[in-house]
Amino acid sequence: MKKVTFNERDMMLRVGFFVFVIALWHFSVTLLDISPLVFPAPWGVVVSLYQGIASGEFLFHTGVTLYETLMGFVIGAIVALVLGGLIGQIRLLEKIFYPYIVAFQAMPKVAVAPLFVAWFGFGVTSKIIITATIVFFPILANTIVGLRSAPREQIEMMAAFTASPWQKFLMVRFPHALPYIFAGLDVGIVLAIIGAIVGEFVGAQAGLGYLILQRNFSMDITGVFAILIVLSAIGIGLHTIMKFIAKRTVFWSETSEDLRQ
């Protein structure tokens, strides 16, 4: 259970490698005399990042993107869990719904995004809906697989002790599915950020995606890099929180990591 994630030597290697990458970046850019309009130097990015934070600009746009991301994630996850729960339990529903779900999943959401913006406007609503549709599928698929894959012997054990179908669901199928569901949620939370950014690219009035487009137009490549750093920080943060919750909830599962596809 307890893994040695890093000891001192690992830590030194990591820091060393980080310094090496930054140095390589810095010297490549300065020695080759690359224009900041093409590829900015690390120091410029740090300055831009600081300015963005200090001026409150990042805080505002991050707030908008984070709101879209989380709302979309929560809505998509709830729909996926409810539908997954029903489909996982009732085979007939799978036969009826699943072809449409797969067809919908096969559609690239990026291609559908302009439609949502046309329907729901340039505000946050269209972004939330795009995010929800992207988040939906991995959570749905994992929920169904999790509910279906309860070991036969555990179900037989429950049956031998006269459990009702509902008791089998509550006491075995659902807890058994939890590691799968968390693996789906973990994929979903990262996809959610993509959903929000895609939505903002198509047409928005605020958000980090909107800000990227703006800065791109005004040739502020250094500023774009700064936003990318903010975005990946958000991604890492959300993923870490998700993993923390998963570890607490499905403490018995040693493989929840491996279940992620």
Binding site: P151, E153, Q154, E156, A160, F161, T162, P175, L178, W252
Partner: peptide, 17 residues
């Protein structure tokens, strides 16, 4: 299945959670 019967299985079949 009946309440009158208790079963011990070939493998323990405990619920890990």
């Amino acid at each position: 299945p009946s309440v009158e019967i208790g079963v011990v299985f070939q493998s323990p079949v405990l619920l890990p959670w």
